[in-house]
Simulated scan of single mutants.
Amino acid sequence: MDSKFQKKLDSVTGHRANRHKYADEVLENPALFPELMRLCFLTSNKNAAKACWILELVCYEKLEWLQEYLDFFCSNIKNQTDKSAIRALSKICLLLAISHFKKKEMLLTENQLQQITETCFDWLMTDVKVASKCYSIRALHLLGNHFDWIHPELKVILDKDYNSHSAAYKAVGREILKKIK
Score class of each variant (00 low, 15 high):
residue 48 A to R: 09
residue 118 E to D: 11
residue 157 I to V: 08
residue 144 G to D: 05
residue 25 E to Y: 09
residue 59 C to A: 09
residue 101 F to V: 10
residue 81 T to A: 07
residue 87 R to G: 02
residue 62 K to Y: 10
residue 132 S to W: 00
residue 26 V to K: 03
residue 126 T to K: 03
residue 126 T to V: 15
residue 135 Y to H: 13
residue 36 L to R: 03
residue 166 S to N: 15
residue 145 N to K: 13
residue 69 Y to K: 11
residue 134 C to V: 03
residue 77 I to Y: 04
residue 24 D to S: 08
residue 53 W to F: 07
residue 28 E to G: 15
residue 41 F to I: 06
residue 71 D to H: 12
residue 93 C to T: 11
residue 18 N to T: 12
residue 66 L to Y: 05
residue 135 Y to P: 06
residue 162 Y to L: 05
residue 76 N to D: 10
residue 36 L to T: 03
residue 26 V to W: 00
residue 135 Y to K: 01
residue 165 H to Q: 09
residue 15 H to N: 14
residue 22 Y to L: 00
residue 23 A to M: 08
residue 121 F to T: 10
residue 12 V to W: 01
residue 140 L to I: 00
residue 150 I to R: 01
residue 88 A to M: 08
residue 171 A to D: 09
residue 98 I to W: 01
residue 147 F to G: 04
residue 54 I to V: 05
residue 3 S to Y: 02
residue 130 V to S: 13
residue 95 L to P: 03
residue 110 E to P: 05
residue 68 E to Y: 14
residue 87 R to P: 00
residue 6 Q to P: 00
residue 14 G to R: 02
residue 48 A to W: 07
residue 72 F to Y: 09
residue 131 A to T: 13
residue 146 H to D: 09
residue 69 Y to E: 12
residue 6 Q to Y: 08
residue 81 T to I: 14
residue 174 R to C: 04
residue 79 N to P: 12
residue 114 Q to I: 12
residue 47 N to P: 14
residue 89 L to R: 06
residue 97 A to M: 05
residue 118 E to A: 15
residue 172 V to R: 01
residue 32 L to S: 08
residue 11 S to E: 11
residue 117 T to A: 15
residue 76 N to R: 11
residue 58 V to W: 01
residue 37 M to K: 08
residue 180 I to C: 07
residue 75 S to Y: 11
